[in-house]
Amino acid sequence: MDVNTKFVISAEDEKFFGKMGSFGIPKFDKIMNGGVPRGFTILALTDPGAGAELFAKQFLSPCEEPENTVYISTNETSDEIMQVYDKYNWLNELQIISIGSEYNERVLGKELQASKYRLEGFNMSDIQRLSQTRFVDDETEDFLTEMANSIIERGPFFRCAIENLDFFFQRYEKSRVISMLRMMQAHTQMAKGILLLCVSTDSLDTSIEQEMSSIADMVLTFGVHMIGSEFETRMIVRKFRNAPENLSVMSYRVTPEEGITPETVQRIA
């Protein structure tokens, strides 16, 4: 796997895409003083159910170049994702890679078949096929490499969200996952793309979280807090490379019209 180091970025594209891209949330763009710089890798650490999966979809809604916009999901089907885009009337011409579905088909399917053979045994046609099969069918169950490839193949000014990385941490060596993330970050920087990586906080140990935070250019956390008898969803910008003034804490709502909207509170002196 080679990180593509040869990009031809035309002046026209530079002008069109500019130095910053939108988060897909206008209010958030304003709070972040313009949006997200091209080349940024964003790490979204989330409590389960805190809304990061919706953020990831909304993040891709600007969809400046549909063919260069990719949503990689590990636990939703293409249809489920499209439903969300339709619900909020977001541009839905982006590419969707549903690793979860592929995993179910290939890996879980194989496991089910193995259970069947163990329980019911082989019939004649199974045996004939077995005696003619000369190689173990391991047509890349390496979803980690597939995922990384789908980022590294992207051209300049791509936009991508991976929701979420838990799938990979559960199945592959953590060091290997981190290694892939570094490659993806390097490519994103060089291609002036924007990459969003979502991961659940409860699936990570501290050292991995720290390592990922150091790789990322921006770190967001999504949390759910009890205030009295109500829930409050909160977003914290913990890191923003070269712009510490962007560090902030904000609560947000989800509305049918806008999706995730930060709530800004004005102090009245």
Binding site: E111, A114, Y117, R118, G121, L130, T133, R134, F135, D138
Partner: peptide, 29 residues
């Protein structure tokens, strides 16, 4: 002619070592 590797794969015997259940699955196969 059967490849044991292929048989292991078909039976889901992917671990490095086999336990009692795996052995019975292999004998049965």
């Amino acid at each position: 002619v059967f490849d044991m590797d292929v048989l292991y794969s078909w039976l889901g015997l992917t671990k490095a070592t086999f336990d009692l259940g795996d052995i019975h699955a292999l004998i049965k196969a």
